[in-house]
């Protein structure tokens, strides 16, 4: 028996399941090798520590209902029942920071959907005169239905009501904080730790009227007069080959001065600039992102970050803007 071999026998020694001859050899070795003897004594101590009782934790109150909601979705999808829809409302509180420049939050949603059977959106808001929708735009079909904010104490809660179209089997929401309001130049920036911080990621139940409290960020310090741009993105992802993505920019502070539109910037950066400059929520649907997100955007001359979306999108044959709720505008693909 040698020192290397005996460690493999600790459990059998402790449980006394060695055959007598091997046990005798092991005991002989422990008798003459103080290093192994001490090591085995520590093993015995560790085993005794593991025998101490373990306190149980309580299952979350909504656990079973959440499981059953997901199961219902699975069952529904497997049976191809039409008309399934699910609502998810997220509450994201972020500390209000007076005197700090505009900050932007964005929600990126990607969901597996049955793209062959799009469902019209019942919650589509009225098209405002300021941002007329082209006749060819039948309506907004993105997942974001309502974006609002409320303040409690020193925190501002941002509420995201998400409606998932028919056929989505699961949802994942990712919340990101970007270190600069202009950091989202491309979707891949979200995977870049130097520019995007994944602040929250979770599967959420897809049942009606569910509110999830998601504390994302707390400002710990900020010099007076500084700018503190945020960008928090959320992804709703499904399984399967079809992946749907939607993006929402939500300003946290409306005091930021208008920013210039960068010529040649892509749709991400352009809309982010507008959102931060005007303090409006902008959501972008899957079709718009697919067709235009990464391509350079040629801003019409004379427009800047304070221009209405319709002016910004003038001449963009594949894009249109509509208002879907107060303070929230959608850029949709045609």
């Amino acid at each position: 028996m040698n020192c290397d071999r005996i460690q493999n026998l600790y459990t059998d020694l402790y449980e006394d399941t060695l055959n007598p001859r091997i046990k005798q050899l092991a005991m002989l070795h422990l008798g003459v090798c103080s290093t192994c003897r001490l090591d085995y004594e520590r093993f015995q101590e560790a085993m005794r520590l593991l025998d101490e009782p373990v306190q149980q934790v309580a299952v979350p109150a909504a656990f079973r209902s959440q499981v059953l909601a997901r199961v219902a979705i699975e069952a529904n999808q497997s049976s191809k029942l039409p008309g399934w829809r699910s609502w998810l409302q997220l509450r994201i509180p972020v500390l209000r920071l007076a005197g700090v420049g505009a900050a932007v939050m964005a929600i990126l949603a990607a969901a597996a959907v049955d793209l062959s059977t799009p469902t019209p959106n019942a919650n589509q808001g009225d098209i405002v005169a300021r941002i007329p929708a082209p006749p060819s735009v039948s309506g907004y079909s993105g997942v974001f239905q309502k974006l609002s904010a409320s303040t409690q104490g020193d925190k501002t809660y941002h509420n995201f009501t998400i409606e998932l179209p028919t056929g989505i089997s699961s949802a994942r929401v990712n919340a990101y904080v970007l270190q600069d309001a202009r950091a989202l130049t491309d979707e891949s920036a979200l995977d870049d730790k130097t520019s995007a911080t994944l602040a929250w990621s979770d599967n959420e139940p897809l049942t009606s009227n569910v509110q999830v409290n998601i504390p994302v960020a707390v400002v710990t310090s900020a010099p007076a007069g500084s700018t503190l741009p945020f960008l928090v993105c959320s992804t709703v992802a499904g399984s399967g080959e079809s992946v749907r993505k939607d993006l929402a920019f939500v300003p946290l502070d409306n005091s930021r001065p208008a920013l210039a539109i960068q010529r040649g910037a892509n749709l991400y950066l352009t809309l982010q600039t507008v959102s931060a400059s005007q303090g409006i929520n902008i959501v972008v649907d899957d079709a718009a992102l697919k067709a235009n997100a990464r391509a350079p955007y040629a801003a019409p001359s004379g427009v800047d970050g304070s221009s209405p979306l319709s002016a910004l999108l003038a001449g963009q044959t594949h894009l249109a803007a509509i208002q879907i709720s107060t303070g929230t505008y959608a850029v949709v693909g045609q």
Binding site: Q179, K193, A199, V218, V219, T220
Partner: peptide, 20 residues
């Protein structure tokens, strides 16, 4: 790559502690 929940996000002019 995922960040620790205890990370402090260092910004140019301030710091943000992610708090989940």
């Amino acid at each position: 790559q995922h960040l620790s929940l205890d990370d402090v996000v260092e910004l140019e002019e301030s710091s943000v502690a992610r708090q989940i």
